[in-house]
Design a protein around this nucleic acid. Structure first.
Lengths: 204, 204, 204, 204
DNA sequence: TATGAATGAGTCTTCATTCAT
DNA sequence: CATGAATGAAGACTCATTCAT
């Protein structure tokens, strides 16, 4: 019961500091001393709570899994696909883009570190990615069976969509000034491409 | 003239070992001692040639920029888009998928480390990403002006395509057994989605 | 206030060990590992307190500057010159020679390393040497204006005296068995030479 | 026969470079690589000729001993003391100060390194210092027995003189701008102090 | 419980020395 | 003989982790 939820305020400070530092410098590039300093606690306190440096990462992962397993955005996205209402999409963006962007560093961190830590990878794949896949592919399959969607591999369809969005968001962060498009418009276009393709239908 | 090409055999051994280790453990997670061991040279030899650990990464980057500025695959991809021949796509996959997949770890490494080393980021964005963007967006713009392609932001169109492919490849590596689709087919589907969308045209 | 004085016992152990090792082998010839061993602490502890190897040297310098700026011996020497009492000289020697000789290695070290570290040189020249010059030249100038001392350049007069004493002390350390003179007598003779010259006055 | 003289031109280049670098950075602070570079030879060449880094220092010492055992200046200084001609002193300064100053770094180097290398110390004490002592004390003893010089310990008298001169020269190098005295005058004053003391004879 | 000084294994880096060419 | 690439032992320094207070 005290497994994943209960975070004392000290633990919360440390976790927040760790997410910040890990995101900026990567797990290996970060030092517990800097985390302690940013968290405003003594270095020893970290080890009292998390045992090892990796313990912090694992706690972060655990917390994230809970939060990301059925995130608002994705639920909305699933609903959107199910209902096929393009206007709804704009609304989602406006409502939830902020929280997505706020959590983007954490997600990026976890997916990146997954490469190097098999326990992290396992959980990210099994829990986070799988649940996203399941959540989004469900409405897709529904609309495939109704004939509205073409019959590609559903997982692949999810990837195409998620990867496009992810790619856009990450790119915007790396090279912020390169892009002059309005956020809303950009994401609407990405969705449009995914839905209807780049080819002009008149043409085909 | 001897700027980026000429690598002595010792240097090549070290670079190859470094790419392997860096890819597996990240830059910070790797040790020069392990690189030396894998390369089959003394640790001191590394520093005789590259000065610092970071010097190895920078040399890797330099070599990669040369190789990636106009990679075969992308040139073929550009041609494919220009000519609109789907069959051609299959052929490209068969011919060049191997080399892409072989270089994927290196590319992933460099984009990953770009987060933490601004010199790397600068070059990856300015040289590698930009040249890919330019290369692929050219034929897209051409077909947009002929009315064959819809008028989205060209950069966004490139992202949708590249990110989808990248996402598929990375995912396949992370979770190899999850996917039973044939490689060729999978990539062909990804391209199809990008070209024509997921929505069944009859339906729209 | 806690600038230069407060040394924890750990810091004191390290500083003492460092003075010993540096004096014996020079700064570059010493290793932090040996200093740690002599100090009876872990090597890491040194860096926790002084940051770098050079940091130890700088702390030593700082401490020394405080101690040497107005050392007992020199104050006594100045008084001696002012009052012109030769017997007083003998007394000073007996009282303070021990402490001078004990600090000689440290002083030698600092003047030696001043050659190679400009920050050290600056402080040794500006703070230590200058304050010695000022301290000793003051009574000299006083006795010059009263006509008791001949009118040489005062700094030069200080040098002649200090260098003679220094030379004798250093030499005695380098070649201990060469000299059979009694310490007191020897230094009294050095002072006598400086005061009255080697030439027999009857002769001139 | 080929013991101390014969230096091939390559050896000479290396020795010269080594004296320069050793003087600037101390023995331990110098690298064979820098010496090789300054000498314009390959690093390996140094070891072909001198075996080890210390071998260079020993060769320097050997050469120096030959040159310093009866150096012109000291012979002149001895003559000066013997003949008691103050004007002669000025002449010596003008003639030989340059060569002294040129060799000062080498001498300083050897006396400094003597602290850390017992073989060097032995030779510097036994050969160089002793021969200087003997050379200069001889005329002193002569004038003592004639009653012209007071009967201090002769070695001490030599020290007072040499240390004063040495002190002045070294100080002038360390703190060049501090001293406005003319070189000639300064050294003449140092000699005068040694000969006749600082006390005004009228006064005594 | 929180602290932070102390630890020491492990890292990057240097450099005297060797040796095949 | 001279070269300079390669070596590897040793050095300065870092940092996760421990523990007495």
């Amino acid at each position: 019961m005290e497994r994943s939820m209960e975070l004392t305020s000290t633990q919360k400070k440390i976790i927040d500091a760790a997410i910040k530092i890990f995101s900026e410098k990567g797990f290996e590039g970060s030092t517990t001393s800097e985390i302690a300093q940013v968290a405003g606690v003594a270095e020893g306190t970290i080890f009292r709570h998390f045992g090892t440096k990796k313990g912090i990462l694992q706690k972060i992962l655990l917390q994230a899994v809970v939060n990301f397993q059925r995130p608002e955005v994705l639920v909305s996205l699933a609903k959107l696909i199910e209902e096929g209402d393009d206007q709804f999409w704009i609304q989602i963006i406006n409502e939830q883009l902020g929280s997505v962007q706020q959590q983007l560093p954490l997600l990026k961190l976890l997916f990146y570190e997954a490469q190097f830590h098999s326990e992290v990878q396992e959980i990210m794949v099994e829990k986070v990615a799988r649940s996203i896949l399941d959540l989004i592919s469900e409405p897709i399959v529904k609309r495939q069976s109704s004939g509205e969607f073409r019959s590609f591999d559903p997982n692949l369809m999810v990837f195409s969509l998620i990867a496009s969005i992810w790619g856009y968001l990450v790119w915007k962060q790396i090279a912020p000034d390169q892009e002059k498009l309005d956020e809303e418009q950009a994401l609407a276009q990405v969705l449009d491409i995914w839905l209807h393709g780049v080819v002009n239908p008149q043409d085909s």
